[in-house]
Simulated assay, not measured.
Amino acid sequence: MELEYSSALTGAGYMLYEVKQISILKKEGLLDKEIRQKVLEENLFQYEKMSSIKRAFPYILKRVNVLDESLLQLITQESLEIAKIINLYGIMKSDRLFFEFMNEVIQEKLQRNEYLLEKKDVNSYFTIKAEQSDFIASWSEATIQKLKQVYKKILLETGMLKSLRTGELNRLIIDEQIKDQLRGIGDIQYIRAMGE
């Protein structure tokens, strides 16, 4: 089943801490509604506003729900570097527009050994997508701007972007455990999209 395009990342960016909290509860065997209840009652995300938790929660849960048992194990037990890459995979796997950005912009640049993400690259990506999809074309300029910021911030927090100012790209070092797992479940395209 192909994912629909979504602007959900405007309200649920990188959020590694939140993803790890939900992953831990998932590993403990809690059901989605039990996880939601626990997150809200105990303010596990440590947010000031309950409305922020309620808005972000469904997207974070969706991201965690695309992770299999092995990836849940890795994201909760292994290093921060491994968790970052699994979170990036989760974002791509649960957000079609972001996956296509990684696949069509970042992967292509890294394949050509171009290590600069320029404003025009991001702008033209969104322009092309708006031409291909009436749904994306209907989004406000503010939504598109916010998504551009969030995409860059995700790359920055993952370590693929050295700085927002320079736009300099880095290759990720992807742990063999992650590569083996993603290959094993037929998700090699996500490894490629990360520039491998």
Rank of each mutant, 00 (worst) to 15 (best):
T76R: 10
V150K: 01
A8C: 14
I144G: 02
T76H: 12
A83N: 11
L110T: 02
A56L: 10
A12P: 03
E18L: 01
T143P: 03
E42L: 11
Q145G: 14
Y151M: 14
E100W: 06
E78H: 11
Q46A: 13
R36H: 08
Q73C: 13
Q189R: 13
T127N: 14
I60H: 05
L3N: 04
V122K: 00
K33P: 04
V19P: 00
Q73K: 14
K62I: 00
M15Y: 10
K152R: 15
I91N: 01
L72M: 07
E131S: 15
K119E: 13
M1R: 11
I191P: 01
T158E: 05
A12V: 06
G159D: 06
K62C: 00
L117K: 01
Y17W: 05
T143C: 07
Y151D: 12
F99I: 04
N103Q: 12
Y17T: 09
T127P: 03
D180K: 07
A83M: 10
L71I: 13
I53H: 03
E69Q: 09
E41T: 07
F101N: 00
R63F: 07
S94P: 07
R96V: 08
K119L: 04
W139I: 04
K84N: 11
E157G: 02
S23T: 02
G29E: 12
S70Y: 08
Q73R: 14
I91W: 04
L147R: 06
W139F: 13
Q177N: 06
S7T: 15
K33D: 12
L88A: 13
V64Y: 03
Y59F: 13
L88W: 08
L116F: 13
E81W: 07
A56F: 10
K20V: 09
D32S: 11
I24G: 02
I35L: 05
M50F: 12
T10D: 01
K129G: 03
I136L: 11
V39A: 07
I106F: 00
N113G: 04
L71C: 11
I174Y: 01
G195Q: 05
T166P: 05
L156N: 03
Q107D: 14
L110Y: 05
G195V: 02
V64D: 02
K33W: 08
M194Y: 03
